[in-house]
Write a protein that binds this DNA or RNA. Structure first.
Lengths: 200, 200
DNA sequence: CAAATTACGTACCCTTAGTTACGAAATTAG
DNA sequence: CTAATTTCGTAACTAAGGGTACGTAATTTG
Protein backbone atom coordinates (compact mmCIF):
# COMPACT_ATOMS: atom_id res chain seq x y z
CA UNK A 1 0.00 0.00 0.00
CA UNK A 2 2.82 2.51 0.66
CA UNK A 3 3.38 2.48 -3.12
CA UNK A 4 7.13 2.90 -2.78
CA UNK A 5 8.81 5.07 -5.36
CA UNK A 6 10.42 3.37 -8.37
CA UNK A 7 14.19 3.31 -8.68
CA UNK A 8 14.33 5.22 -11.92
CA UNK A 9 12.42 7.81 -13.89
CA UNK A 10 11.84 11.46 -13.20
CA UNK A 11 11.43 12.03 -9.47
CA UNK A 12 8.01 13.03 -8.24
CA UNK A 13 7.63 16.61 -7.16
CA UNK A 14 3.89 16.68 -6.42
CA UNK A 15 3.31 16.96 -2.72
CA UNK A 16 0.42 14.56 -2.20
CA UNK A 17 -0.07 15.48 1.40
CA UNK A 18 -0.16 19.18 0.76
CA UNK A 19 -2.76 18.75 -1.97
CA UNK A 20 -4.82 16.49 0.26
CA UNK A 21 -4.69 18.83 3.24
CA UNK A 22 -5.60 21.79 1.08
CA UNK A 23 -8.48 19.91 -0.50
CA UNK A 24 -9.73 18.81 2.89
CA UNK A 25 -9.68 22.30 4.32
CA UNK A 26 -11.33 23.75 1.24
CA UNK A 27 -14.09 21.15 1.13
CA UNK A 28 -14.60 21.48 4.85
CA UNK A 29 -14.80 25.25 4.98
CA UNK A 30 -16.60 25.95 1.70
CA UNK A 31 -18.52 22.75 1.08
CA UNK A 32 -17.52 19.77 -1.05
CA UNK A 33 -19.23 21.11 -4.15
CA UNK A 34 -18.02 24.66 -3.93
CA UNK A 35 -14.41 23.85 -4.67
CA UNK A 36 -13.09 23.12 -8.15
CA UNK A 37 -10.03 21.00 -8.70
CA UNK A 38 -8.45 23.88 -10.55
CA UNK A 39 -8.78 25.96 -7.40
CA UNK A 40 -6.90 23.40 -5.38
CA UNK A 41 -4.22 23.36 -8.05
CA UNK A 42 -3.87 27.11 -7.85
CA UNK A 43 -3.64 27.03 -4.08
CA UNK A 44 -1.02 24.32 -4.00
CA UNK A 45 0.89 25.13 -7.15
CA UNK A 46 0.19 21.66 -8.46
CA UNK A 47 -0.87 21.01 -12.03
CA UNK A 48 -4.22 19.45 -12.89
CA UNK A 49 -2.72 16.39 -14.56
CA UNK A 50 -0.56 15.99 -11.49
CA UNK A 51 -3.56 15.91 -9.23
CA UNK A 52 -5.33 13.51 -11.57
CA UNK A 53 -2.34 11.22 -11.68
CA UNK A 54 -2.35 11.14 -7.90
CA UNK A 55 -6.06 10.87 -7.11
CA UNK A 56 -7.57 9.59 -10.33
CA UNK A 57 -10.60 11.84 -10.41
CA UNK A 58 -12.61 14.42 -8.60
CA UNK A 59 -14.39 11.58 -6.88
CA UNK A 60 -11.04 10.09 -5.87
CA UNK A 61 -9.82 13.35 -4.38
CA UNK A 62 -13.03 13.82 -2.42
CA UNK A 63 -12.83 10.27 -1.19
CA UNK A 64 -9.26 10.80 -0.03
CA UNK A 65 -10.26 14.03 1.70
CA UNK A 66 -13.21 12.39 3.44
CA UNK A 67 -11.00 9.54 4.51
CA UNK A 68 -8.48 11.96 5.97
CA UNK A 69 -11.33 13.76 7.69
CA UNK A 70 -12.59 10.57 9.24
CA UNK A 71 -9.20 9.96 10.83
CA UNK A 72 -8.74 13.55 11.85
CA UNK A 73 -12.17 14.24 13.29
CA UNK A 74 -14.68 11.43 13.23
CA UNK A 75 -12.50 8.83 14.86
CA UNK A 76 -11.43 11.13 17.72
CA UNK A 77 -15.04 12.13 18.10
CA UNK A 78 -16.16 8.58 18.76
CA UNK A 79 -13.16 7.86 20.87
CA UNK A 80 -14.60 10.36 23.28
CA UNK A 81 -17.33 7.83 23.92
CA UNK A 82 -15.01 4.94 24.54
CA UNK A 83 -13.14 6.24 27.50
CA UNK A 84 -14.22 4.51 30.59
CA UNK A 85 -16.43 7.11 32.07
CA UNK A 86 -20.03 7.56 32.98
CA UNK A 87 -22.70 8.13 30.37
CA UNK A 88 -23.24 11.63 31.65
CA UNK A 89 -19.56 12.53 31.57
CA UNK A 90 -19.25 11.20 28.06
CA UNK A 91 -22.15 13.38 26.96
CA UNK A 92 -20.50 16.42 28.44
CA UNK A 93 -17.30 15.51 26.67
CA UNK A 94 -19.22 15.21 23.42
CA UNK A 95 -20.61 18.69 23.79
CA UNK A 96 -17.19 20.08 24.63
CA UNK A 97 -15.69 18.38 21.62
CA UNK A 98 -18.38 19.70 19.32
CA UNK A 99 -18.49 23.26 20.56
CA UNK A 100 -14.84 23.95 21.17
CA UNK A 101 -13.52 27.17 19.71
CA UNK A 102 -12.48 26.13 16.26
CA UNK A 103 -11.03 29.41 15.15
CA UNK A 104 -8.50 29.07 17.96
CA UNK A 105 -7.39 25.66 16.71
CA UNK A 106 -7.48 26.71 13.10
CA UNK A 107 -10.11 24.29 11.88
CA UNK A 108 -13.29 25.21 10.02
CA UNK A 109 -16.76 25.21 11.47
CA UNK A 110 -19.26 22.51 10.65
CA UNK A 111 -18.63 18.91 9.67
CA UNK A 112 -17.47 17.68 6.29
CA UNK A 113 -19.37 14.43 6.71
CA UNK A 114 -22.61 16.19 7.58
CA UNK A 115 -22.12 18.51 4.61
CA UNK A 116 -21.51 15.57 2.30
CA UNK A 117 -24.57 13.80 3.59
CA UNK A 118 -26.60 16.84 2.62
CA UNK A 119 -25.07 16.81 -0.85
CA UNK A 120 -25.02 13.07 -1.26
CA UNK A 121 -26.50 13.06 -4.74
CA UNK A 122 -23.86 15.42 -6.07
CA UNK A 123 -21.00 13.15 -5.07
CA UNK A 124 -19.26 10.48 -7.10
CA UNK A 125 -19.93 6.85 -6.30
CA UNK A 126 -16.80 6.21 -4.26
CA UNK A 127 -17.26 9.21 -2.02
CA UNK A 128 -20.96 8.49 -1.69
CA UNK A 129 -20.30 4.95 -0.56
CA UNK A 130 -17.81 6.19 1.99
CA UNK A 131 -20.34 8.72 3.25
CA UNK A 132 -22.90 5.97 3.71
CA UNK A 133 -20.36 3.76 5.39
CA UNK A 134 -19.33 6.45 7.85
CA UNK A 135 -22.96 7.16 8.64
CA UNK A 136 -23.60 3.52 9.44
CA UNK A 137 -20.41 3.25 11.47
CA UNK A 138 -21.43 6.32 13.40
CA UNK A 139 -24.81 4.86 14.24
CA UNK A 140 -23.12 1.62 15.26
CA UNK A 141 -20.71 3.48 17.51
CA UNK A 142 -23.54 5.25 19.23
CA UNK A 143 -25.39 1.96 19.60
CA UNK A 144 -22.47 0.24 21.31
CA UNK A 145 -22.05 3.15 23.67
CA UNK A 146 -25.76 3.24 24.52
CA UNK A 147 -25.94 -0.50 25.06
CA UNK A 148 -23.04 -0.21 27.43
CA UNK A 149 -24.74 2.56 29.35
CA UNK A 150 -27.88 0.46 29.54
CA UNK A 151 -26.04 -2.54 30.83
CA UNK A 152 -24.41 -0.39 33.47
CA UNK A 153 -27.77 0.92 34.53
CA UNK A 154 -26.81 4.44 33.50
CA UNK A 155 -29.53 4.78 30.92
CA UNK A 156 -33.17 3.86 30.76
CA UNK A 157 -33.98 0.57 29.07
CA UNK A 158 -37.38 1.51 27.71
CA UNK A 159 -36.15 3.23 24.56
CA UNK A 160 -34.79 1.10 21.72
CA UNK A 161 -31.07 1.60 21.19
CA UNK A 162 -31.37 2.28 17.48
CA UNK A 163 -33.82 5.10 18.16
CA UNK A 164 -31.46 6.68 20.64
CA UNK A 165 -28.60 6.28 18.19
CA UNK A 166 -30.57 8.14 15.53
CA UNK A 167 -31.40 10.75 18.13
CA UNK A 168 -27.74 11.39 18.93
CA UNK A 169 -26.88 11.46 15.27
CA UNK A 170 -29.63 14.01 14.71
CA UNK A 171 -28.42 16.20 17.57
CA UNK A 172 -24.91 16.16 16.24
CA UNK A 173 -26.13 16.97 12.74
CA UNK A 174 -28.19 19.83 14.12
CA UNK A 175 -25.24 21.20 16.06
CA UNK A 176 -23.03 21.08 12.99
CA UNK A 177 -25.66 22.78 10.90
CA UNK A 178 -26.04 25.53 13.48
CA UNK A 179 -22.31 26.02 13.53
CA UNK A 180 -22.26 26.30 9.75
CA UNK A 181 -25.08 28.83 9.92
CA UNK A 182 -23.15 30.96 12.35
CA UNK A 183 -24.83 30.23 15.67
CA UNK A 184 -22.28 30.90 18.44
CA UNK A 185 -20.75 27.87 20.09
CA UNK A 186 -21.99 28.71 23.55
CA UNK A 187 -25.54 28.86 22.24
CA UNK A 188 -25.08 25.55 20.45
CA UNK A 189 -23.79 24.08 23.69
CA UNK A 190 -26.94 25.20 25.47
CA UNK A 191 -29.14 23.63 22.84
CA UNK A 192 -27.17 20.40 23.06
CA UNK A 193 -27.41 20.33 26.83
CA UNK A 194 -31.14 20.74 26.45
CA UNK A 195 -31.20 17.84 24.02
CA UNK A 196 -29.29 15.59 26.36
CA UNK A 197 -31.12 16.72 29.46
CA UNK A 198 -34.29 15.35 27.95
CA UNK A 199 -32.97 11.86 27.74
CA UNK A 200 -31.89 11.31 31.28
CA UNK B 1 -49.26 43.00 -8.75
CA UNK B 2 -51.66 40.79 -10.72
CA UNK B 3 -49.84 42.11 -13.81
CA UNK B 4 -52.95 42.08 -16.00
CA UNK B 5 -52.48 41.07 -19.61
CA UNK B 6 -52.10 43.85 -22.17
CA UNK B 7 -54.90 44.39 -24.67
CA UNK B 8 -52.86 43.71 -27.74
CA UNK B 9 -49.82 41.78 -28.83
CA UNK B 10 -49.38 38.06 -29.22
CA UNK B 11 -51.28 36.22 -26.51
CA UNK B 12 -49.24 34.48 -23.85
CA UNK B 13 -49.16 30.72 -24.02
CA UNK B 14 -46.67 29.96 -21.27
CA UNK B 15 -48.38 28.39 -18.30
CA UNK B 16 -46.67 30.11 -15.40
CA UNK B 17 -48.33 28.01 -12.79
CA UNK B 18 -47.48 24.74 -14.43
CA UNK B 19 -43.84 25.72 -14.75
CA UNK B 20 -43.78 26.85 -11.14
CA UNK B 21 -45.41 23.69 -9.83
CA UNK B 22 -43.07 21.53 -11.85
CA UNK B 23 -40.04 23.46 -10.66
CA UNK B 24 -41.19 23.22 -7.07
CA UNK B 25 -41.70 19.47 -7.23
CA UNK B 26 -38.40 18.93 -8.98
CA UNK B 27 -36.41 21.07 -6.54
CA UNK B 28 -38.18 19.48 -3.63
CA UNK B 29 -37.71 15.89 -4.68
CA UNK B 30 -34.25 16.09 -6.23
CA UNK B 31 -32.71 19.06 -4.48
CA UNK B 32 -32.52 22.68 -5.65
CA UNK B 33 -29.18 22.22 -7.34
CA UNK B 34 -29.90 18.96 -9.08
CA UNK B 35 -32.41 20.40 -11.50
CA UNK B 36 -31.46 22.40 -14.57
CA UNK B 37 -33.81 24.94 -16.07
CA UNK B 38 -33.66 23.04 -19.35
CA UNK B 39 -35.05 20.02 -17.53
CA UNK B 40 -38.04 21.98 -16.32
CA UNK B 41 -38.56 23.22 -19.85
CA UNK B 42 -38.56 19.69 -21.18
CA UNK B 43 -40.99 18.54 -18.53
CA UNK B 44 -43.42 21.38 -19.13
CA UNK B 45 -42.95 21.91 -22.84
CA UNK B 46 -41.99 25.50 -22.20
CA UNK B 47 -39.08 27.17 -23.97
CA UNK B 48 -36.09 28.47 -22.10
CA UNK B 49 -36.59 32.08 -23.15
CA UNK B 50 -40.20 31.74 -22.08
CA UNK B 51 -39.18 30.68 -18.62
CA UNK B 52 -36.61 33.48 -18.45
CA UNK B 53 -39.19 36.05 -19.54
CA UNK B 54 -41.44 34.86 -16.75
CA UNK B 55 -38.99 34.39 -13.90
CA UNK B 56 -35.99 36.45 -14.91
CA UNK B 57 -33.28 34.02 -13.95
CA UNK B 58 -32.48 30.75 -12.27
CA UNK B 59 -32.44 32.64 -9.01
CA UNK B 60 -35.87 34.10 -9.78
CA UNK B 61 -37.36 30.70 -10.50
CA UNK B 62 -35.94 29.22 -7.31
CA UNK B 63 -37.21 32.18 -5.33
CA UNK B 64 -40.68 31.73 -6.80
CA UNK B 65 -40.58 28.01 -6.03
CA UNK B 66 -39.45 28.61 -2.45
CA UNK B 67 -42.16 31.20 -2.03
CA UNK B 68 -44.76 28.74 -3.27
CA UNK B 69 -43.32 26.16 -0.91
CA UNK B 70 -43.59 28.49 2.04
CA UNK B 71 -47.29 28.93 1.40
CA UNK B 72 -47.89 25.28 0.66
CA UNK B 73 -45.94 23.74 3.52
CA UNK B 74 -44.21 26.09 5.90
CA UNK B 75 -47.21 28.24 6.67
CA UNK B 76 -49.51 25.27 7.36
CA UNK B 77 -46.75 23.78 9.45
CA UNK B 78 -46.64 26.76 11.78
CA UNK B 79 -50.39 27.08 11.79
CA UNK B 80 -50.36 23.75 13.56
CA UNK B 81 -48.87 25.59 16.51
CA UNK B 82 -51.39 28.37 16.54
CA UNK B 83 -54.52 26.40 17.16
CA UNK B 84 -55.66 26.91 20.62
CA UNK B 85 -54.53 23.70 22.16
CA UNK B 86 -52.17 22.52 24.81
CA UNK B 87 -48.41 22.55 24.33
CA UNK B 88 -48.37 18.77 24.41
CA UNK B 89 -51.14 18.39 21.85
CA UNK B 90 -49.44 20.83 19.55
CA UNK B 91 -46.22 18.82 19.74
CA UNK B 92 -48.10 15.67 18.83
CA UNK B 93 -49.68 17.49 15.92
CA UNK B 94 -46.24 18.62 14.79
CA UNK B 95 -44.98 15.08 14.73
CA UNK B 96 -48.04 13.90 12.84
CA UNK B 97 -47.63 16.67 10.31
CA UNK B 98 -43.96 15.90 9.81
CA UNK B 99 -44.22 12.13 9.59
CA UNK B 100 -47.42 11.70 7.63
CA UNK B 101 -47.25 9.33 4.71
CA UNK B 102 -46.14 11.59 1.91
CA UNK B 103 -46.27 9.06 -0.87
CA UNK B 104 -49.99 8.74 -0.18
CA UNK B 105 -50.51 12.48 -0.62
CA UNK B 106 -48.19 12.68 -3.58
CA UNK B 107 -45.63 15.04 -2.08
CA UNK B 108 -41.88 14.43 -1.84
CA UNK B 109 -39.98 13.54 1.28
CA UNK B 110 -37.80 16.04 3.04
CA UNK B 111 -38.12 19.81 3.16
CA UNK B 112 -37.17 22.22 0.41
CA UNK B 113 -36.26 24.89 2.91
CA UNK B 114 -34.01 22.58 4.88
CA UNK B 115 -32.39 21.44 1.65
CA UNK B 116 -31.81 25.02 0.57
CA UNK B 117 -30.34 25.90 3.94
CA UNK B 118 -27.82 23.13 3.42
CA UNK B 119 -26.96 24.49 -0.02
CA UNK B 120 -27.18 28.12 0.91
CA UNK B 121 -23.93 29.13 -0.76
CA UNK B 122 -24.97 27.66 -4.08
CA UNK B 123 -28.09 29.78 -4.32
CA UNK B 124 -28.57 33.16 -5.92
CA UNK B 125 -28.88 36.22 -3.74
CA UNK B 126 -32.67 36.52 -3.88
CA UNK B 127 -33.30 32.92 -2.97
CA UNK B 128 -30.64 33.05 -0.29
CA UNK B 129 -32.23 36.07 1.31
CA UNK B 130 -35.59 34.36 1.28
CA UNK B 131 -34.05 31.27 2.87
CA UNK B 132 -32.61 33.40 5.65
CA UNK B 133 -35.88 35.22 6.11
CA UNK B 134 -37.85 32.00 6.39
CA UNK B 135 -35.38 30.65 8.90
CA UNK B 136 -35.75 33.72 11.07
CA UNK B 137 -39.53 33.66 10.75
CA UNK B 138 -39.53 30.03 11.74
CA UNK B 139 -37.50 30.73 14.86
CA UNK B 140 -39.82 33.62 15.68
CA UNK B 141 -42.86 31.42 15.26
CA UNK B 142 -41.43 28.84 17.62
CA UNK B 143 -40.57 31.59 20.09
CA UNK B 144 -44.09 32.98 20.18
CA UNK B 145 -45.51 29.51 20.69
CA UNK B 146 -43.06 28.72 23.47
CA UNK B 147 -43.67 32.02 25.24
CA UNK B 148 -47.35 31.29 25.12
CA UNK B 149 -46.83 27.85 26.63
CA UNK B 150 -44.67 29.38 29.33
CA UNK B 151 -47.27 31.99 30.20
CA UNK B 152 -49.88 29.27 30.43
CA UNK B 153 -47.71 27.32 32.78
CA UNK B 154 -47.45 24.47 30.28
CA UNK B 155 -43.71 24.70 29.88
CA UNK B 156 -40.82 25.21 32.24
CA UNK B 157 -39.56 28.74 32.59
CA UNK B 158 -35.94 27.90 33.31
CA UNK B 159 -34.82 27.51 29.71
CA UNK B 160 -34.46 30.59 27.52
CA UNK B 161 -37.03 30.74 24.76
CA UNK B 162 -34.51 31.31 21.98
CA UNK B 163 -32.64 28.17 23.00
CA UNK B 164 -35.82 26.12 22.88
CA UNK B 165 -36.69 27.63 19.52
CA UNK B 166 -33.32 26.56 18.13
CA UNK B 167 -33.92 23.16 19.65
CA UNK B 168 -37.23 22.72 17.85
CA UNK B 169 -35.72 23.98 14.64
CA UNK B 170 -32.92 21.46 15.01
CA UNK B 171 -35.34 18.60 15.66
CA UNK B 172 -37.34 19.48 12.61
CA UNK B 173 -34.20 19.73 10.50
CA UNK B 174 -33.06 16.37 11.79
CA UNK B 175 -36.40 14.78 10.98
CA UNK B 176 -36.35 16.17 7.47
CA UNK B 177 -32.83 14.96 6.93
CA UNK B 178 -33.73 11.49 8.12
CA UNK B 179 -36.68 11.43 5.79
CA UNK B 180 -34.44 12.45 2.92
CA UNK B 181 -32.02 9.70 3.87
CA UNK B 182 -34.76 7.11 3.78
CA UNK B 183 -35.47 6.50 7.45
CA UNK B 184 -39.08 5.24 7.75
CA UNK B 185 -41.61 7.73 9.05
CA UNK B 186 -42.59 5.62 12.05
CA UNK B 187 -38.96 5.51 13.15
CA UNK B 188 -38.65 9.26 12.67
CA UNK B 189 -41.77 9.72 14.77
CA UNK B 190 -40.18 7.69 17.55
CA UNK B 191 -37.05 9.80 17.47
CA UNK B 192 -39.12 12.97 17.54
CA UNK B 193 -41.16 11.73 20.47
CA UNK B 194 -37.92 11.07 22.26
CA UNK B 195 -36.77 14.58 21.49
CA UNK B 196 -39.94 16.15 22.82
CA UNK B 197 -40.17 13.83 25.79
CA UNK B 198 -36.93 15.24 27.05
CA UNK B 199 -38.21 18.75 27.24
CA UNK B 200 -41.26 18.21 29.40
C1' DC C 1 25.98 8.37 -24.05
C1' DA C 2 21.71 5.81 -25.48
C1' DA C 3 17.71 3.55 -23.99
C1' DA C 4 14.19 2.93 -20.86
C1' DT C 5 11.35 4.78 -17.49
C1' DT C 6 8.63 7.87 -14.89
C1' DA C 7 6.70 12.33 -13.87
C1' DC C 8 5.78 17.08 -15.40
C1' DG C 9 2.61 20.64 -17.05
C1' DT C 10 0.83 23.47 -21.16
C1' DA C 11 -2.83 23.67 -23.84
C1' DC C 12 -6.41 21.69 -25.08
C1' DC C 13 -11.13 18.96 -25.30
C1' DC C 14 -15.91 18.28 -24.00
C1' DT C 15 -20.05 18.57 -21.48
C1' DT C 16 -23.26 21.02 -18.75
C1' DA C 17 -26.01 24.70 -17.84
C1' DG C 18 -27.26 29.57 -17.38
C1' DT C 19 -28.45 33.12 -20.55
C1' DT C 20 -29.77 35.76 -24.73
C1' DA C 21 -29.90 37.61 -29.80
C1' DC C 22 -33.07 37.80 -33.03
C1' DG C 23 -36.36 36.89 -36.52
C1' DA C 24 -41.04 35.01 -36.78
C1' DA C 25 -45.81 34.76 -35.19
C1' DA C 26 -50.10 36.45 -33.25
C1' DT C 27 -52.92 39.85 -31.92
C1' DT C 28 -55.26 44.71 -31.59
C1' DA C 29 -55.63 49.73 -32.80
C1' DG C 30 -56.46 52.88 -36.53
C1' DC D 1 -54.46 46.36 -44.59
C1' DT D 2 -50.67 48.52 -41.94
C1' DA D 3 -48.47 49.66 -37.92
C1' DA D 4 -47.65 48.86 -33.34
C1' DT D 5 -47.21 45.68 -29.84
C1' DT D 6 -46.27 41.61 -27.37
C1' DT D 7 -44.80 36.93 -27.06
C1' DC D 8 -42.73 32.87 -29.10
C1' DG D 9 -38.87 29.68 -29.59
C1' DT D 10 -34.66 28.17 -32.40
C1' DA D 11 -30.15 28.49 -32.23
C1' DA D 12 -26.84 30.24 -30.66
C1' DC D 13 -23.24 32.28 -26.86
C1' DT D 14 -20.53 31.87 -22.69
C1' DA D 15 -18.34 30.34 -18.47
C1' DA D 16 -17.15 26.80 -15.48
C1' DG D 17 -15.20 22.79 -14.59
C1' DG D 18 -13.93 17.84 -15.07
C1' DG D 19 -10.65 15.45 -17.65
C1' DT D 20 -6.64 14.35 -20.96
C1' DA D 21 -3.28 14.25 -25.23
C1' DC D 22 1.15 14.83 -25.78
C1' DG D 23 5.66 16.67 -26.02
C1' DT D 24 9.26 17.58 -22.55
C1' DA D 25 12.18 16.96 -18.52
C1' DA D 26 14.61 14.23 -15.14
C1' DT D 27 16.30 10.14 -13.61
C1' DT D 28 18.55 5.25 -13.59
C1' DT D 29 20.41 1.27 -16.09
C1' DG D 30 23.80 -0.75 -19.21
Amino acid sequence: MPERSPSRGRPKTLDRDQVLQTALMQYWSKGPNEVAIGEICTLTGASKPGVYREFGSDDGLKLAALDAYSHLVIRPFFEVLEHDRSFGDAQTALIDFTTQDRAAIGIPNGCLHVAMRAQRDKLGVMTREKVDLLRQEGLDNYAVWIEQAKSRGEFRMDIPTDIVALYFDAQNGGAMRMQTEGVPNDVIAKVMRLALMAIQ
